[in-house]
């Protein structure tokens, strides 16, 4: 009797334990199921969504930070080395064999190339944008816009191919003889020209958008005062769209300095500061592309190349910032961009 009682009590206890264990598990499962089902109500999953999405959202920030950090740490050796230091940005001699790592010629080369390209692309591009947004017959506008957008999509290596095989020979055989400059065609001029061609789509597209956001009423007010269409587009529309056009120019300047393949193929890559349009030149992107492969086992050389990359990065950040300032200026003074 007692045995059975004991047994029973034990089993009851056990059962209770088992039962409670079971029920706990069940309760847990049902609770999480419930949670999952109730996820459709405000609360948990929303929080999950919020934090789960936070990480992808900051991915671009993280990448920027990583790029800055790695370029910085890679550049430190040359910046602290007695043969280098921050002075490399103004020192003109690049000779890895003698541990001379002046990067001034690359900066000058890049700026000259970009300058020529901007000087050509901006007036033409703004003119084209005015045509597209103000005068273009409706039937032509869409096809022209489409071609210009396609031009922006053509890979830079294809531009490079064309420039190398067509533009460079033209410069060598047809343009250089005019001034009797000895050149093989691979020159500052070739780099500037192909860059200008590559920038035009950007300048045209962004400027056209900026011009089209100018309210129609401003054009009408100008025309109603007896202005011609060309006067209206130059004096009112262009000036009203100035912030947007400015942003287009700065952004394309950034692209000009950062363009790699096409420029690499046509500028001749010679370690000198060009004194004429027909002299070869060496730009920042080219020196990295050409030498990083050999340099990565030589700490200083490699570091100097990353310093060039750092300069490029800082320049591109500055251009983006300036473009943003233009946009903010437009929002502030015009209320639109």
């Amino acid at each position: 009797m007692t045995m059975t009682e004991e047994n029973e009590t034990i089993t009851m206890q056990e059962e209770e334990q088992i039962h409670s264990w079971h029920s706990q598990l069940l309760r847990n499962i049902s609770k999480s199921l419930h949670d999952f089902r109730m996820a459709d109500r405000p609360g948990k999953v929303d929080m999950l969504g919020k934090w789960g999405l936070f990480i992808p959202a900051v991915a671009s920030t993280l990448i920027i930070v990583l790029i800055l950090a790695f370029l910085w740490f890679e550049s430190v050796p040359i910046l602290v080395d007695p043969s280098g230091g921050p002075g490399i940005v103004v020192s003109p001699t690049w000779d890895p064999n003698r541990d001379l790592f002046g990067i001034a010629i690359f900066i000058v080369g890049s700026l000259l190339c970009a300058g020529i390209a901007i000087g050509l692309a901006v007036p033409l591009g703004i003119g084209g944008a005015i045509f597209l947004s103000e005068f273009c017959p409706m039937r032509l506008r869409q096809p022209i816009k489409m071609i210009i957008e396609m031009m922006a999509a053509i890979p830079s290596i294809v531009y490079g191919l064309w420039a190398y095989l067509v533009l460079v020979p033209i410069i060598k055989n047809n343009i250089a003889p005019i001034t009797q400059s000895p050149t093989n065609g691979l020159s500052l001029l070739a780099g500037g020209l192909i860059l200008a061609i590559m920038l035009l789509p950007t300048v045209v597209t962004i400027s056209t958008d900026a011009l089209q956001t100018v309210p129609l009423s401003l054009r009408e007010a100008s025309l109603a005062l007896g202005a011609t269409q060309s006067e209206t587009s130059r004096k009112i529309v262009l000036s009203a769209a100035l912030p947007g056009v400015g942003a287009a120019v700065v952004l394309s300047l950034g692209r000009a300095v950062g363009e790699t393949m096409a420029v690499l193929m046509v500028t001749g890559n010679s370690l000198q500061i060009p004194y004429s349009l027909f002299d070869p030149t060496y730009v920042m992107t080219s020196i990295i592309t050409n030498q990083l492969g050999y340099a990565f086992v030589f700490p200083l050389w490699r570091s100097a190349l990353f310093a060039v990359g750092l300069v490029l990065l800082i320049m591109s950040i500055c251009f983006t910032l300036t473009a943003k300032l233009f946009i903010r200026w437009g929002m502030k003074t015009r209320g639109y961009i």
């Binding site: 009423s217 401003l218 009408e220 009112i236 000036s239 003074t333």
Partner: peptide, 8 residues
């Protein structure tokens, strides 16, 4: 015009 449209 209907809406004031001063030039910028």
């Amino acid at each position: 015009f209907q809406k004031p449209n001063p030039f910028p």
